[in-house]
């Protein structure tokens, strides 16, 4: 093998290609790769954070649902109690009213009965007087016999 100028030519070409690579090839490619790496890392990080936030939100929703459910149960119970109370109160009131009405009406009835009885008694007295007058043919002195008549009327 003969060594000759080819060697020098190859050496120059070698240095040129290395220079070219160093200047125009290596930096943009590695820069792009590094940047992509950073981007991907950031993306993964963001996804991680988002999924964590989602989990948090889900837990919060669960918690709030539980609270709301408890609150609703309490409200329903309260409403039921109140309804019962209202019904009872109404019943109580109705009963009292009915009793009151009954009492007042029975008093009235009694009063009316007494009145009727009184008027009947007076009627009977006057009827008896008329009957006696007819029987005796003379008038009965109402004043003279009033004591007797009153006694009679009270006996009726």
């Amino acid at each position: 093998m003969n060594l000759n100028l080819t060697l020098v030519g190859q050496l120059i070409a070698f240095l040129l290609f290395v220079w070219f690579c160093m200047k125009f090839v290596w930096p943009p490619i590695t820069a792009a790769m590094a940047e992509r790496q950073k981007k991907i890392a950031e993306g993964l990080d963001a996804a991680d954070r988002a999924s964590r936030a989602l989990e948090d939100a889900r837990a919060q929703v669960e918690q709030e649902m539980k609270e709301a459910r408890a609150q609703i149960t309490g409200l329903v119970e309260q409403a039921n109690r109140r309804a019962n109370q209202i019904v009872e109160e109404a019943q109580e009131k109705a009963r009292a009213e009915a009793e009151k009405i009954m009492a007042s009406s029975s008093a009235q009835i009694a009063q009316e009965a007494a009145q009727v009885r009184e008027s009947l008694r007076a009627e009977v007295v006057s009827l008896s007087l008329i009957g006696a007058e007819r029987v005796l043919g003379a008038s009965v002195d109402q004043k003279a016999h009033s004591k007797l008549l009153t006694e009679l009327a009270e006996q009726l």
């Binding site: 093998m1 060594l3 080819t6 050496l11 240095l15």
Partner: peptide, 12 residues
Amino acid sequence: TDINATLGMSIG
């Protein structure tokens, strides 16, 4: 396959 080429690079 030419020693000049390989030697040129290795001298570099």
